[in-house]
Simulated scan of single mutants.
Amino acid sequence: MEWAARGDHLRGVPRKMIFMAVGAFAKAVANLLNTTTVYNVETLLRLVRHRPPGVPLITVSNHMSTLDDPVLWGFKGFPITDVELGRWVLAAEDICFKNPVFSYCFRLGKCIPITRGGGIYQEHMNEALDRLANGAWVHTFPEGKVYQEDAPIRRLKWGTASLIVRAPVTPIVLPIVHHGFEQIMPENYMFGRRPPFPLCNKDVQIHVGEPIVFDVPKLKQEAVDSSRDLSFSHSGWPKTMCGLDEAAQKSLYTNISDQIRQVLESLRTSSLKAN
């Protein structure tokens, strides 16, 4: 259903309707039903609105509930109903694209279906790359699934790292850590299931970090050097991607993912101390 993701689908009217409806819902949950505080919001707004032409943005965050997106963007002052500024987001195919109605609505909402376990070179990762090539904003949850425990950031999947490496223009990478969505939409609320509606009177905190700068050419060379004596059995990956063999690719993606995880964990730790 890629046609529904095109900006000119029915002159863009269905997408505008979805953004208006979902934006109103997100703002209600974030501001009317609950209390949301955002730290360093100026950095996020600046990069969403005023980054250099043609430079893409990747935001990365922890994943505390199924409502993280879109409610993460529902705080006061954020242009959540602006179709042009709105993020593209990688979304789990088995949750968001279970039937044609869901698929249509999520596609209108600028969601890109990702098959969990399908690998970093699955078909729709190319769509995410196309969005980045156009200078768009893409949001990812690099942990790969919801984790509601108060615990350190888990080992990240390699998908986000592969997007950073493969994008024609290296994206700006902005880390975000949040707390409180796990209370609004707990996974085990009643009989091991989520509540039918978001819960109220909870405090949400969103901590925006500073951009992470990646020198991709330098990191590629380091990956080649570090993997020179390593070998991996071929597991369906392209034999060469961005000029790197499989061993170098895995070394590179591990390095970038570890750097992102360390920044997210540092932001998470500092946010807890601030409380």
Results as ranks from 00 to 15, higher is better:
12 G>S: 05
13 V>S: 02
18 I>N: 00
21 A>E: 01
30 A>R: 08
31 N>V: 08
32 L>G: 03
33 L>Q: 04
34 N>A: 04
38 V>P: 06
40 N>M: 09
42 E>S: 15
46 R>I: 00
48 V>D: 07
52 P>I: 13
55 V>P: 08
57 L>P: 13
58 I>D: 12
59 T>S: 15
59 T>W: 13
62 N>F: 13
63 H>L: 13
64 M>P: 08
64 M>A: 12
65 S>Q: 14
70 P>N: 06
71 V>R: 11
73 W>L: 15
73 W>V: 01
73 W>D: 07
76 K>T: 14
76 K>P: 00
77 G>L: 11
78 F>S: 10
79 P>K: 03
80 I>D: 09
85 L>D: 06
86 G>Q: 09
87 R>A: 14
89 V>W: 08
90 L>Y: 13
95 I>R: 13
96 C>V: 05
97 F>E: 06
103 S>W: 03
103 S>M: 01
104 Y>K: 12
105 C>E: 01
105 C>H: 02
106 F>R: 00
111 C>H: 09
115 T>L: 07
115 T>Y: 03
115 T>Q: 14
115 T>N: 08
118 G>H: 04
122 Q>W: 04
123 E>K: 15
124 H>F: 12
125 M>I: 15
125 M>F: 14
126 N>L: 13
127 E>C: 00
128 A>I: 10
135 G>S: 09
135 G>I: 11
137 W>S: 05
140 T>Q: 08
141 F>Y: 15
144 G>M: 04
146 V>L: 06
147 Y>K: 11
149 E>C: 03
151 A>P: 00
152 P>N: 09
154 R>F: 03
157 K>R: 14
162 S>V: 00
169 V>S: 07
169 V>P: 04
169 V>G: 07
170 T>D: 11
171 P>Y: 07
175 P>Q: 10
175 P>V: 09
179 H>F: 14
184 I>A: 07
189 Y>Q: 04
189 Y>C: 10
192 G>I: 09
194 R>H: 12
196 P>Y: 08
196 P>T: 13
197 F>W: 15
200 C>P: 05
200 C>E: 07
201 N>R: 14
203 D>V: 11
204 V>T: 12
206 I>M: 10
210 E>P: 01
212 I>L: 15
213 V>C: 12
213 V>S: 11
216 V>R: 09
217 P>F: 10
219 L>P: 02
220 K>S: 07
221 Q>T: 11
225 D>Y: 06
227 S>I: 05
227 S>V: 01
227 S>T: 10
229 D>R: 11
230 L>N: 03
237 W>T: 02
242 C>T: 05
251 S>V: 05
254 T>R: 14
256 I>F: 06
257 S>W: 10
257 S>N: 08
266 S>H: 10
267 L>A: 12
268 R>Y: 12
271 S>D: 09
